[in-house]
C-alpha cells in the first residue's frame, strides 16, 4: 500500500450527483451579463463613433445615413461575435442603443420627470464596500443607520482568511427618502466598488389590493345590514359564514397592504463589506483597468521588497558571523604577509 494507491482511492471519490444538484440550485438567478454588456456597449460605441467620424470626413450626406446605419449594424454584429458569441440577440439591441446615444438624443435615462405622483415605488440597493479600516467603518455605518432612522435587519460576519480579511453581509432598511443621502455618506466612510439601485413599481398590485379591500369592506357592511334583518336561523348561519370569510380575506389583504407600505417606506439596502489590505476602486474603463493592474503589480513589487528586507534582517546573525570570520581570515593573511 503506498501513495499511488491512496491517490487512486481518492480519485474514485467524486461529488455525487445529489450534491451537484443541490449546489447548482444555490446559484441565484442573476444579472449575469452585466459587465459583458458594458464592454459590448463601449466597443459598439467606439465603432459607431469611428464610423460616424469617418463618414463625416468622406462627405456623405444625410441621405446616406440609413446606409451608414446598416453598415454600423454589420460592424456591431461583428464586434459582438468577437466579444460575446453567445449573445447575438442581445447584440442587436446593444447596437441600436449606441446608435441612439451617438446621434445625440441621449434619452436613455431621462425618466425622473415622467414619475407620476403617487406611484408606489419599492427601492432596493445593493452595495459592495471595501475598507482598510474595518472596525471604523462598522462603527461609522452603525451611526449612519441610526442617524437616518434605519435599522439592521440581518448581519453576518465572517473571518476565514486572516485577521485583516474580514467580511460582513448586512441587510439594512433605510427610510426611502433618506436612501440617496445614506448611500452618499457610505461613499465617504468606505470605498464603494459596486452599486446598484433598483426601483420596482408596484403601483398596479398596490391599487389592486386597495380596491379589493374596498370591495370587501362594502360587502361586509351589506352583510351586516342583512344580518340585522334576517329572521330565520338558516339565513343567519349562511350570512355569518360568508361574513367570516370576508373578514378573513380582509385581514390578509390588509396585512399585504401593510407589508407593501413597509417596503415602500423603507428601502432595503444589502451591504457586502470586505476588509482589504488596500483598496482598489472598480473602474471598467481602459485606463481604469490599466491603473488597477499597475497598482497590483506595484503592490506585488512592494511586497517583494518587504519580504526581501524581512529575510535580510532575519539573516543578520549569519551575516554577522560570516563578517567576523572574514575579518579574522583577512587579519591572519595580512600578518603572514607582514612576516
Amino acid at each position: 500500500m503506498n501513495k499511488k494507491d491512496y491517490i487512486k482511492a481518492v480519485d474514485n471519490i467524486t461529488a455525487p450527483q445529489s450534491l451537484l444538484d443541490k449546489i447548482e440550485a444555490l446559484d441565484p438567478p442573476a444579472k449575469k451579463k452585466a459587465p459583458m454588456w458594458k464592454k459590448i456597449t463601449a466597443v459598439a460605441a467606439c465603432f459607431v463613433a469611428v464610423i460616424v467620424a469617418f463618414s463625416g470626413v468622406m462627405g456623405s450626406t444625410f441621405k446616406a445615413e440609413s446606409e451608414d446605419r446598416a453598415d454600423m449594424m454589420v460592424e456591431n454584429g461583428y464586434s459582438n461575435e468577437l466579444y460575446a458569441d453567445d449573445a447575438i440577440g442581445d447584440v442587436a439591441d446593444g447596437g441600436s442603443f449606441t446608435n441612439q446615444s451617438a446621434s445625440g438624443t441621449g434619452s436613455s435615462n431621462g425618466n425622473p420627470s415622467m414619475k407620476a405622483p403617487n406611484r408606489k415605488i419599492v427601492k432596493t440597493a445593493s452595495l459592495s464596500i471595501r475598507t482598510k479600516n474595518y472596525d471604523t467603518l462598522i462603527t461609522a455605518l452603525n451611526q449612519k443607520i441610526e442617524q437616518y432612522s434605519g435599522y439592521i435587519e440581518q448581519s453576518q460576519e465572517y473571518n476565514y482568511d486572516n485577521a485583516s480579511n474580514r467580511n460582513a453581509n448586512m441587510n439594512v432598511r433605510i427610510p426611502a427618502e433618506n436612501l440617496d443621502k445614506f448611500i452618499e455618506e457610505l461613499a465617504v466612510i468606505g470605498t464603494i466598488t459596486s452599486k446598484s439601485i433598483t426601483s420596482d413599481d408596484i403601483t398596479d398590485s398596490y391599487i389592486d389590493v386597495e380596491s379589493r379591500i374596498k370591495a370587501l369592506e362594502t360587502e361586509e357592511k351589506t352583510l351586516l345590514g342583512l344580518l340585522e334583518k334576517a329572521e330565520n336561523l338558516s339565513d343567519v348561519i349562511q350570512l355569518q359564514d360568508r361574513l367570516s370569510q370576508v373578514r378573513s380575506d380582509l385581514e390578509s389583504l390588509k396585512t399585504q397592504k401593510q407589508s407593501y407600505d413597509g417596503m415602500i417606506a423603507y428601502s432595503g439596502v444589502s451591504l457586502d463589506i470586505q476588509e482589504v489590505e488596500r483598496v482598489v476602486e472598480g473602474d471598467d474603463t481602459f485606463f481604469g483597468e490599466v491603473k488597477e493592474k499597475l497598482m497590483n503589480n506595484l503592490y506585488d513589487l512592494g511586497d517583494f521588497f518587504r519580504e526581501f528586507a524581512i529575510n535580510f534582517i532575519a539573516a543578520l546573525p549569519y551575516i554577522a558571523i560570516a563578517g567576523v570570520v572574514a575579518v579574522i581570515v583577512i587579519l591572519i593573511v595580512k600578518k603572514k604577509k607582514n612576516k
Binding site: I23, L26, P28, S128, Q156, Y158, Y160, N167, N169, D272, Q274
Partner: peptide
C-alpha cells in the same frame, strides 16, 4: 458553497 455565495 453557501458561504462562498454569501461572502462575495
Amino acid at each position: 458553497f453557501v458561504k462562498l455565495l454569501e461572502s462575495g
